[in-house]
Structures are given as structure tokens and as C-alpha cells.
Simulated assay, not measured.
Amino acid sequence: MKIVSWNVNSLNVRLPHLQQWLAAFAPDVVALQETKLEDSRFPDTALAEAGYRSVFAGQKTYNGVAILSREAAQDVQIGIPGFEDEQKRVIAATVGGLRIIDLYVVNGQDVGTDKYAYKLRWLDAVHAWVQDELSRHPDLIVLGDFNIAPEARDTHDPAVWNDSHILTSTAERDALQRLLSLGLHDAFRLFPQEENAFSWWDYRQAGFRRNLGLRIDLTLVSESLRARCVAAGIDREPRTWDRPSDHAPAWVELA
């Protein structure tokens, strides 16, 4: 069973890429972020023709999340329970007995800003919610664009992306570690990986060609799923296409 996270950075622009990639990679579940579409414009008919059912929560121009699956999703949750937020950043559903939480984590702008404080509050709310979800759904996957590079090796230049920089600051990484401490595992790190393996590259300064990237798209699996993980990785191919998303799909395969 292949489960994937992909920040498509506008589904309106990237739908042909998504259709091409679905046909080639044949995932079972795909969690999308930054669809940037109101629900009335979501291409669920086109995706159904590709063999996928969709649940989604979007808004015009910004944010937006969706879960695509070959099997119909059940028990859909939009947003973090008890956390008031107009931004469409969270969707969860149960597919084939797996509880899947799709997150588009707040960027945070810069350390010390109001948006950074909002990011930390948001992550606290996610922690409490995931803790509750784990108590009810032992087979749980939390995946998405986390806007946090877990370790120095997940950045192209740790001297630049240091503990005072957004996406790599101490408080952000601590929040991610608190989430992992609930009993989640970074599936990518369960297997040997090449050095300098990233999932996001800036469009500027030939970032992809020079591999000036960050690994900020994560697939976190619960303890009960750890033994079922047989592979995990990042598919760089779509990043080479014309007018690509700045993110590449991050995936995990379960037996």
C-alpha cells in the first residue's frame, strides 16, 4: 500500500502533473496540500476518472488540503477539533483501516513574528489532537508539508538553516519532536537514504538544479505501522517537469 504526501502548490496549475503522476506511480492514498481551490472548483470528477475518490477542504488562492484514495474515505474530519482557524490546513480520514491526518503546517514567516507564534500554537493544538487520535486509531499516519526540517542533515546548508532560522528553529524542531514522542516514526529515516535528499527547493537561484533544498515533507507512522513499512522515499521526478510544484512527493509503502 503506497501512501503519499504532495504539496502541489496550486492544483489548478498542477492537475495535469498530478494525473500523469498518479498513472505512473499508482499510489493508494495521496494527501495533497496547497490545492489553492475553493471546494466548488475541486476537480473531483477528473480525479474519479483516474480511479481516485476525493475528500477536500479548500479556499480561494491560499492553503487547501485533500485526500485522494482508491477506496472511499470514512470518518472525515476537517480542521483541528477545538482550534478555531479559518485557514484550510487540516483534513483527516480513515481509509482501509488506516487513520490518515493530512497537515499543511503554518510557515511562520520569521522567528519572533506573530505568524511564528501562531505556528507554535497551531502545532500545540495538533499535538493534543494527534495524541487523542492515537488512543482511538493505533494504525495512524500523519503526513504533509510540515514546514520544519527535522535535523541538520535535512537542509542543504546547516550553517544557514540554523536554530534561529524559520523552518529550523529550536522551538519548531522541539514541537516536531514532541509529536514524534507520542509514538510516531519518520518513515523516511527507517531506511537507508542518500545524503542530501530533500523534498522542497526554492524556484529562485536554480535551487533544484543545485540541490539547495530542505526535507520538510514528512510521512510519520505510528508504532503499530512501523513493522509494516517496507520502503519510503521522495520522488524527485515531478520536480523536473515543466512548471512544477516546488515540492516533490514524499511516500511510504506498507506491507
Rank of each mutant, 00 (worst) to 15 (best):
P244K: 05
G183I: 14
I216L: 14
A231V: 01
I234D: 01
G183Y: 12
T219R: 06
A206G: 15
R243C: 00
V160T: 12
R236S: 01
T113N: 07
T170K: 12
L167P: 02
Y118L: 11
E194D: 13
L123R: 11
Y203N: 14
R189F: 00
G207E: 08
L218A: 09
P244I: 02
F188D: 02
E194A: 14
G213A: 05
H127D: 13
I148F: 01
L176Y: 15
L176D: 06
P138M: 07
W241M: 01
H165S: 13
Q109W: 00
L184N: 07
Q205L: 12
A227K: 06
S224G: 06
R121H: 07
D124W: 10
L179M: 09
L225V: 08
Y118G: 02
W200D: 08
W161Q: 04
P238K: 09
L182T: 13
I234V: 11
V106N: 15
R153N: 08
A117F: 05
D157G: 06
S169T: 04
A128Q: 14
L123C: 12
L184E: 05
D139W: 00
G233D: 08
K119V: 04
T240G: 02
D154P: 10
W129E: 10
V105N: 14
S224R: 14
A159C: 00
Q177C: 12
G213W: 04
A227V: 03
L182R: 15
A171E: 15
N211V: 04
D145M: 08
L184A: 07
K119W: 04
D246Q: 11
